[in-house]
Design a protein around this nucleic acid. Sequence first.
RNA 1: GGUGGGUUGGCCGAGAGGCGAGGCAACGGACUGCAAAUCCGUUUACACGGGUUCAAAUCCCGUACCCACCUCCA
Length: 470
Amino acid sequence: MTFQLFDTATRQIRELVPVHPGHVGIYHCGLTVQGPPHIGHIRKEVVFDVLRRWLERSGYEVTIVANVTDIDDKILSKADEQSRPWFAVAYENERALHAAYEVLGCIPPTYEPRATGHVPEMIEMMQTLIERGHAYVAEDGSGDVYFDVRSWPSYGELSNQKIDDMLPAEDAPPEGKRDARDFALWKGHKDGEPESASWPTPWGRGRPGWHLECSAMAAKYLGDEFDIHGGGLDLRFPHHENELAQSRAAGQAFARYWMHNAMLNLSGSKMSKSVGNSLMVSEVVKRVRPIDLRYYLAASHYRSIVEFSEESLAEAATAFARIEGFVRRAAELVGAGELGEVPEAFAAAMDDDLSVPAALAVLQAKVSEGNTLLAGGDTAVLSATLAEVRTMLDVLGLDPLSPTWDRGGDDAAYAQVIDSLVVGLLEQRQEARATKDFAAADRVRDQLTAAGIEIEDTPQGARWSVKGDT
RNA sequence: GGUGGGUUGGCCGAGAGGCGAGGCAACGGACUGCAAAUCCGUUUACACGGGUUCAAAUCCCGUACCCACCUCCA
């Protein structure tokens, strides 16, 4: 079984043939840390986290690089508004990003390089591009360095566009550009910008352009040729097109496959800070369990637009509750056990361009089987079923028994206290039921229900859980 | 103007020429003291108009609407 993925560059499903057998190198564009991450940003993290987990389970060693763009126009203007250093804004939001990874159970990237830490690599790359005649220093004395798109015949190959069909950028005056579509590799220092936001180059002080940093860092950590370059679909053009042009023009083979996740929409348009329809991860996890949010984000195919709604999020939580309910009940009965193998149909679905919806159908069917076994089947078979279900969930980063989801601290302590109280009440209820005093039994149940506790009668006796928390 | 993608049952969401994906909700049944949970069953959908084919949700042509990108964006 080999992994197939949809390659945006060729617009077809292709078998993954890594540069180095047994190893997969992935670069995906992280965040420009001008604000905390919203759930659209984290959708991308979940998508690549699932990719990573699946490739690792398939036996590959995976190196993941996700950059942090810690300098750009918006970071500078936000810092200016708040009268803080630009790096204070950048670090604060980088920490918010890490908190979001953690709360949603995303394994951190192998390397997470910051743009400002790779200026020498960028200068070297610009020198190469200038020598080869693909880049030039602006003639207006601004200190900008531009890529010459007319010098690179295949420019537009990734987004399937012809240079002459593109609308030239309207926002900025042509300044020192030879062609309006030329893009900045490096931005010369401007009056009014803090001195700390500029670095010396042979062409004067300035700061990194967005596109160049990714090319430089991908090559540094993954080599001149690597396997998968990913990111949100909105980055295909211009960002990824430009990266591709630069790196190839500098003589590198660059990425073999391009993988783009679709956007998460809210009220019909892409969730983004500029539209003002962002739901921050930190806010959403206050009212939704993180594992439910992850299920919601992971359950759709990564190339499908997700139209966010509270209703579908709630529905996802209900669907996941059935899965989680099985795992917990089974684990109470036969023990958590070890992870094992994944059913073949599940593997086939995942190998088919990460078809999570089809994989989930396999998982749901296993849960049904498991629930039937729970009602009085062979415990050895039940253990095996539980192992399969948990292994599938682990691939999706959704194993409820994983320590990832332990909230620890006070919660754990309170849980013990509550457990002893509830168990005491359940014993009273059981005594009442034994003497057929159902009115008394129901009073206990109503009391617990009113307190937000759900009771489930199983062949092994009553078990309880906090409502909405399984 | 250019480049991609989409429109599937009450809802969410897969599929990409012939077998009713799956989930949620609803209803019926089993189980239960009654419930809940669970299991079983029921509900035949593919924007519209043409065409190709023995056979179309799936391929082709046209129409409408939606999204993304061409400007900072995951």
